[in-house]
Nucleic acid binder design. Structure first.
Lengths: 206, 206
DNA sequence: TAGATTGTTAATCGATTAACAATC
DNA sequence: TAGATTGTTAATCGATTAACAATC
């Protein structure tokens, strides 16, 4: 393990896949798994899996493979999922509301803790057991609750402004569902996830 | 342009980004744009943009750049967005319903034309102007309407079965929102899009 | 011990970027 | 023509994969 290497995004994106797979094995009372087996089940090269994992430490046992419970614990810790991660969401349209509900029965560590909307008619509504708050309340909430992650589900035209406000408040990681590029300082991480763009790309394969 | 090269997925995924950008320029009555300008605005290397585009043809004019309307038309044609693409969606939970609504005011060529659900209580409900149909009706619908693209928004446990049914019916491209890997024949294209996994990966950057 | 499988090095593959001749 | 910018080649960079010594 080289402590000072930059870890590629593409590796980070595979870690939750590994974790989910391990949780499935765990539910089936499987105690150990080899990179070969993982590769078969996940359609990945075993060498790639070993290389990914070895970046973070020597988690395996030669001749035996990986202990499922050990490895999932390590991965959870690497990803920071061993603690609760508070998330705010801005934009309570259909998609935003769906994510708030979805959130409730999913991953226990990543949790939407508060929801905001700039439109007065939305404020005060209840979505997924949360009451929608006005945008003016966002900064205080983010700071008082040390929220670092935000989800944007507003229309395209509003996305940049919301991102700016989030960053101003102290958010450093943004999941953007608006179909538009948002510009952020280099210390802020943005992940775009946009159905329209995905469908358009998939259209090529028809 | 080499007609027989395999085009990388990563290039295909950038095409809708270019297209969206060009549409923005068009709305601002900009008539031409250079790869330099595009690169500045999209945070991409100009050489990469030129290389991506040159795979499909010589769309630019030396010394002048690209005509916005020409290029967007070409991209639309490459992606197959110059015709209507019928899409079915299976699983009318919060997310599925949101996508049906979202769909209505978005991209005109990719359109969800019918919605299905395996749960009797969902069948007959109206979402986004469509009436939810039972799973038994899916195959006939897909075949009669020559639907090739499907969206999966069912819970994880049901995802593989739905994928199998879709493929059986003639679907060849699937956008999967269930947080699970689905196994498909090599002639079927699957794109996964899962909020939980994305949030977990983003957690690393906190 | 013999068999299995890791962690890691080296080879390969593929994507990005720099550089520049061609040319509008 | 002079300046700008393409399309493309070659160089670079980075990620994937094969191979294998180490070792449980």
């Amino acid at each position: 393990m080289d402590k000072y290497q930059k870890i590629p995004d593409v590796v980070i994106k595979r870690l939750p896949i590994y974790l989910r797979y391990l949780d499935q094995l765990s539910a089936m009372d499987v105690e150990t798994v080899s990179s070969q087996q993982m590769g078969d089940d996940l359609n990945l090269n075993p060498a790639q899996i070993r290389k990914d994992l070895s970046i973070f430490g020597d988690f395996g046992v030669k001749g035996m493979g990986y202990r499922v419970s050990d490895l999932s614990e390590k991965l959870r810790s690497i990803l920071g999922l061993d603690k609760e991660i508070p998330i705010i969401l801005v934009g309570v349209g259909n998609l935003g509301a769906a994510l708030c509900q979805y959130n409730r029965y999913q991953s226990p560590s990543t949790r939407i803790v508060s929801v905001f909307d700039g439109h007065p008619s939305k404020v005060g509504q209840t979505v997924g057991s949360m009451v929608v708050k006005p945008m003016e309340d966002m900064e205080d909430f983010v700071q008082q609750n040390k929220v670092k992650m935000g989800i944007i589900t507003v229309p395209s035209q509003a996305a940049q402004k919301v991102a700016d406000q989030m960053i101003e408040s102290g958010i450093t990681v943004i999941l953007n569902f608006a179909p538009t590029l948002i510009h952020v300082p280099s210390n802020v991480k943005v992940q775009n996830s946009d159905v329209t763009t995905e469908l358009q790309a998939l259209s090529y394969y028809l």
